[in-house]
Write a protein that binds this DNA or RNA. Structure first.
Lengths: 294, 294
DNA sequence: TGCATCACATGCATTTACGCACGGCTCATG
DNA sequence: CATGAGCCGTGCGTAAATGCATGTGATGCA
C-alpha cells in the first residue's frame, strides 16, 4: 500500500508550511509558487499515508504527524546549515562569495571606503553586503560576518568589540543657536520609537522639551532632523558625519551600545572572513575617536 | 533572506554515491537510473561550488567535501528513519502495511498457519512477509517485527525469547537404519557451510563420518538430505516437520540458538505489532516442545 | 589480439513537476 | 449588500528532470 519513503525536499516543504501557516507564505520562503507547495504536501501525505494538514480558509493547520515531521525536518535543516558553514569555514581561497551584514548607516558613514579597499585588494572575492539592522542568522549563513551595534552580542557567535560608542544630541544650526540663546525656550525633538523622552543630559540643560514625532527608522529620523523638525539623540559617529546637523551646545555625550564584529565559530578561520577582519580591526583602532567623542 | 541552498535529495544522492562508489550502485539503491545520479551530483557540485568526486575509470572517488556532505546526509537520514518509526509507532490502527521478517524455513514449518490466522483476524492489515535469514535493519524500518534464530539478539532492539531450541541429527530412513544396524559403517553427511564436521553427539555413536558436501543454504541442504545424500544436523522443529527424514538413532539433541521476537523500541506499542505479538507468544508457549525435543 | 564486461558520458524522447491564469470561498469593511 | 483582499483548488501550456539507447575508453580473459 504505502511505500514508506519520503522525498526529503517534501519534508523541507512541510516544515516551511508548518512554520508559515499558509501555502503562499511557505512558497515565499522556498522560492516556489504556492501551487507547488500544495502539490508537494499532497505527495508527502500520499507517501506517508497520513493527513498532515487540516485545510481551513485561514490556512493550513498542521496535524500531530506534521509536527513530528517538522521536528525531524528541523534537525535535518540544522545538519544542512552546519554543513554549509563547515564547507565555507574550510575554504581557504580568496575567491567567490563573501557576505557582510552591517547597519546601513554605519556603512554610509564610514564603512563604504573600507568596502572599496576590500574589493580592490581582493578582486576575486564577490562581496555581498546586506545593509540592515535586522540580526541575520549566522547559523543559517545568511552572512559570513556581521557588524552589530549592541551591548549584548550573545554567546553563540565569536568576535570582538571593535569600539565603544557614545551618543550625542544634534539639531540644525538654527535650532541649536535658538536653544543656546534661550535654554528655557521650547525645544522640539524627534525620537526613535523605543525612546519615551529626550535624554536626561539634554533635559537638564533645556527642560522645555516638546516631542514632535516618533520614527521607527533611523534614516527617516535623521531626515526629519535635517529639515528642522527637531533635535535628536544618536551615536556621535552618525551626528559627526551628517551634513546640516551640529551638536546641541552644553549637552554632554552619553554611553551608547558598542560595535561588535561577529562571525560563526565555524567560519572564524575562513580566509575571506579573516581578511575582512584584518581590514576592520586596525581601522577601528585608528579612528576610535570618531565613535567616542564629539 | 536567501541563503545558499542545497537540494536535500541531491544530498541523499551524494550520500548514496559515497556509499556505493559507482553511479550504477547508487542508482540501484535510490531506485533511479545512473544517469540521474550523475546529473544530480553535477547539480550539487554546481550549487556548492565544490568538486565532490574524482571521476575515475573504476568509479567515483569522493573528495573531503563529499565526505563532509555525506556525514551530514547520514544524520539527516537518521532523522528520516526516526520519523518513520515514530509515525508507525504512534499508529494505533489495524489497517495498512505490517512487515514481518522471519527465517523462511520457520515460516514453512510452523508460521504459515499463524500468518493465515493473523490475516483472517485483521483483514484490513496488509501483511508483508520478508522471508530471509538476513538481518534486516529495523532502524530503517525494513520490517516492523523480526523473528530471529540467534543467541545474541543485540541490545538495540526490544523483544523477548520465544523459545529455546535444540538441534538433532536426521537422515532418510534407509540411512538411519543402515547406521543403526552397523554403527561402525561409513555414515555420509551433508553440512551447513559454517560447520567443519558433524556434531560430536553423532560422531561418538557413528565415528566413521564422510562429508559428502557443504551447502550455504538450508533449503538446499535439506533437499540434499531428503534425496539421501547424507545425514544432517538441524533444529528439531525442522527435522520433525520435514517429510522423509527421521532422527538418527541413539543420537541425543544438542543446544541450538533460541528464537527471538524483536522490534524497534519506537514500534513496540504500535497496535499492529502488538497484535502480532499477541498471536506469537501463546503459540510458542503452547508448542514449545516442537522446538526442544525430538 | 579479439571479445566481453564494466563504468561512464551524451543525445533524444518522454514523463514529471512547475508556474500562471482563472474561479470559488470566506471574512472584514464601507 | 456590495466590494476587495486573502487564501486555496483546478486546468493548461511550458520547462525541467528522468529514462533509454548509443558510443567511448579501460580492464580482464581466452
Amino acid at each position: 500500500m504505502h511505500v514508506m519513503q519520503v522525498n526529503w525536499d517534501d519534508m523541507r516543504t512541510v516544515l516551511a508550511l508548518v512554520r508559515a501557516g499558509t501555502l503562499a507564505g511557505a512558497a515565499e520562503v522556498l522560492g516556489v509558487s504556492y501551487t507547488t507547495v500544495s502539490r508537494r504536501v499532497q505527495r508527502a501525505e500520499g507517501m506517508l499515508g497520513h493527513v498532515l494538514f487540516e485545510r481551513h480558509p485561514e490556512g493550513y493547520i498542521p496535524t500531530a504527524e506534521a509536527h513530528d515531521l517538522a521536528a525531524a525536518a528541523k534537525q535535518m535543516e540544522q545538519q544542512e546549515h552546519q554543513l554549509l558553514r563547515q564547507l565555507a569555514g574550510q575554504d581557504q581561497s580568496l575567491t567567490g562569495a563573501f557576505t557582510l551584514t552591517a547597519p546601513e548607516l554605519l556603512i554610509q558613514a564610514h564603512l563604504a571606503p573600507l568596502l572599496l579597499e576590500f574589493t580592490n585588494r581582493y578582486p576575486e572575492v564577490e562581496l555581498r553586503v546586506k545593509a540592515t539592522n535586522d540580526w541575520l542568522d549566522l547559523n543559517r549563513r545568511e552572512a559570513d560576518l556581521a557588524l552589530r551595534i549592541s551591548s549584548d552580542p550573545g554567546d553563540t557567535l565569536v568576535g570582538r568589540k571593535l569600539t565603544t560608542q557614545r551618543s550625542g544630541c544634534f539639531a540644525t544650526p538654527e535650532i541649536a543657536e535658538r536653544a543656546a540663546a534661550d535654554p528655557m525656550a521650547v525645544l522640539d525633538w524627534v525620537l526613535f520609537s523605543e525612546q519615551s523622552k529626550p535624554p536626561e543630559a539634554a533635559l537638564s540643560q533645556y527642560p522645555n522639551a516638546r516631542v514632535r514625532a516618533r520614527f521607527d527608522d533611523m534614516v527617516a529620523l535623521v531626515a526629519a532632523a535635517r529639515v528642522g523638525m527637531g533635535a535628536l539623540r544618536m551615536p556621535v559617529f552618525l551626528g559627526r558625519s551628517t551634513p546640516g546637523l551640529v551638536p546641541l551646545p552644553q549637552v554632554a555625550t552619553t554611553p551608547y551600545a558598542p560595535i561588535w564584529m561577529l562571525s560563526h565559530r565555524d567560519l572564524q578561520h575562513a580566509r575571506k572572513v579573516a581578511a575582512f577582519k584584518d581590514l576592520l580591526v586596525p581601522w577601528f583602532k585608528q579612528y576610535a575617536d570618531l565613535f567616542t567623542s564629539l
